[in-house]
Design a protein around this nucleic acid. Structure first.
Lengths: 392, 392
DNA sequence: TAGGCTTATTTTTAGACTCGAACTAAGCTT
DNA sequence: AAGCTTAGTTCGAGTCTAAAAATAAGCCTA
């Protein structure tokens, strides 16, 4: 039942959408190039661009001389048509960033948060949003918010690690006076979206972005669209294995997550791991030459390889992107062995079609990815003229 | 980059498609009901049905009297517009079935095959297709073929269990004189498709169909569309566990597949399992009251639950359909315990949104599912009039 | 410096399509 | 038989894309 009736208006929306997307992703293009890139006739490309220019969504971006012929006028998305905001709600703090439509960072604000107080957090988000736009909220096309948990109907958040249970975040932020459209999504997915648009996922359409931090998550892209689920970390990989904080046993996260890795290290050592915080502890583990540390790292690589192999077998991706702070730290030193471990566990055929790469964006990508949500909505709706704001 | 330009012609195709789909899935409908069901205006519903009636794709199906008003004329897909054929290529034999567009079985042919001889099999498929239509090949809209392996570009088959490596099956069948359009797909997926259209998956749009036979596979439906991959059986569930026939260790299949289950039973018993074939051996295991058998079954339920939980966590389906001959045999006796084991391993939240059910179709569903492939193509393309055959 | 040439856009025109409104068809009730 | 009710069709308006023709804007050459 996904098929939906189409009316003549949908045509224009759809074609506006492909045209806008072509411009967003493939930089400034002339009308002619646009026509070629989208498959639209030059006539249609022309009328649509005229419309979009008129609405202020597009802007001219110089022209390219030719050797004997009318020069092409380049067009691009007008970066100043509106602003988008990305919010990264982490386990210990929030980060709010303001972007223009070229995704250039214009302002950033960070605050620490205490766990378990959604009301305070939503108020903090609202005030930070106001700070970052300096009061000019009417120019904001939307606010994307990445949260460390699952999101229902785009508005209700369940985030165990910060003690949120069925928090109606969208309503709360609106109640705090933010009227711009809100887009709430799992942080792993916003980070995955960022890698897809601007990082290691560019150009591919079947990708798994594996995110390894304190916990373990994954974002799955199939046929170019980001998939909803993705609780890869709580996939059983050792039946009846180590207890996991989720209540089950033998989850991948309990072995390959930073916390699980350090727990195992601690047990093997018989004492605490050096390092002031989790991140430096992981570094010290990875950099240690002691046999115990080497063994723990080798084991981790093995478990991670098996976990990645599961993704390869299930999703048959053309690319696997290894990200997350712990994933990047481990991958920077051990990528070859991770690849080998994956190969040992995966089916030959899907494995032969995939490539494992390191993520290109740091964990800050959560906010960028969150900010892409309103942009994606804009591109997808073809910036429906019926919703377009009048630009004075 | 998935977005594609739209022309005014696509409109009609799309609307023909939704209208045809409504009729296919929701039985005979009047034009008025069609208009309501599809969202099309009565005018458009009328002109499109007129067109389709004219082309022979639709037929009238009586009328419904009303209390004081013009009676509604019911329309349905003309079952005799064309025939479709479903082929089930199994590990020991093939089955070829002929259907009309109401998916009524009109003829069936079965043959045994020897493994490792693609040429003979393709010739056998071709001759069986000819047999089943009694020479009337020009009436056939398409032949769907379910194979026990992976399919590339819809034509090249890799099927380890019958010794096929990169077999260009489509070309071979065409070379054997079958000119009808061919649709080749993994058998687990065709079976899943059958459950979606006619079985336990009806009406849902996020479903995982778990198929447990000698081996283990899954078909994943997201947002109403069947996903490509799905090598669930070779997902690591016991790190460094039992060797699997795929070459890796600890795969789910080595524990929850019929073969793996019987292997473990055999080891525990210390001697062979009673039963003339795999299927009867499984029955005897499931029906036995011996402590060893009970223990093996309980273990299997546990592994299977963990495997299903992985699917729940990863895909967040609204429904899990347990199928395959061994899955049905096990599920018929142990569904409650399978549900409990799944619950023990899955995250509470996605688990709360899912329901586990038994498949409603037997393993014969492979052929039916295969036959749905050309039907799906017909519905999806809206039976493009430019491709429609002229019906004398 | 004026034509000619080349390439890029815009205008014009034709054709396809959906929708709303008016209209016709086909039954039942009184 | 007139009126009522519901089903389906026809017509006109409006939207949209594509192909073709026209125009714009440069370079090159004589």
């Amino acid at each position: 039942m996904p098929a939906k009736r189409a009316t003549v208006r949908h045509l224009r929306r759809q074609n506006r959408s492909v045209l806008l997307s072509a411009l967003f992703f493939d930089g400034p293009l002339s009308r002619q190039e646009l026509s070629a890139a989208t498959g639209l006739s030059p006539a249609t490309a022309s009328t649509i661009t005229a419309e979009l220019l008129d609405e202020g969504l597009l802007a001219e971006a110089g022209s390219v001389e030719s050797d004997g012929g009318r020069p092409r006028v380049l067009l691009r998305i007008n970066p100043d048509f509106g602003r988008v905001i990305g919010v990264d709600v982490g386990e210990t703090g929030i980060k709010v960033e303001l972007f223009d439509l070229a995704m250039t960072t214009l302002a950033t604000v960070e605050h620490a948060i205490a766990p378990g107080d959604p009301l305070a957090v939503s108020a903090l988000i609202a005030s930070s949003v106001r700070d970052v736009v300096d009061g000019a909220l009417d120019n904001v096309l939307g606010v994307g918010i990445g949260v460390p948990g699952t999101v229902e109907q785009g508005s209700v958040v369940h985030a165990q690690t910060i003690g949120w249970d069925a928090v109606p975040l969208a309503d709360m932020i609106r109640a705090a006076g933010i009227t711009a459209p809100l887009f709430i999504e799992n942080g792993a997915k916003t980070q995955g979206q960022a890698e897809m648009w601007f990082g290691a996922g560019r150009g591919a359409s079947h990708v798994v972005i594996a995110l390894i931090g304190s916990g373990v998550g994954a974002a799955v892209v199939t046929d170019g669209t980001l998939y909803r689920g993705g609780e890869w970390g709580h996939t059983t990989i050792v039946y009846n294995g180590r207890p996991c904080r989720c209540g089950s046993r033998g989850c991948l996260e309990a072995y390959a997550g930073a916390e699980g890795m350090l727990d195992r290290y601690r047990e093997a050592l018989g004492h605490d791991v050096p390092g002031s915080d989790e991140q430096s502890s992981v570094d010290s583990l990875l950099d240690s030459d002691s046999p115990i540390a080497l063994e723990i790292v080798a084991e981790t690589v093995g478990y991670l390889g098996a976990g990645i192999a599961n993704l390869v077998n299930l999703f048959n991706p053309e690319r696997i992107v290894l990200g997350g702070w712990a994933g990047l730290a481990l991958g920077a030193r051990e990528l070859d062995r991770i690849v080998a471990a994956t190969s040992a566990h995966a089916l030959r055929h899907p494995y032969g079609q995939t490539r494992i790469e390191l993520g290109q964006l740091g964990p800050d990508a959560v906010a960028v990815g969150a900010a892409t949500l309103p942009v994606a909505a804009l591109l997808e709706a073809g910036a429906d003229p019926r919703q377009a704001r009048v630009v004075a």
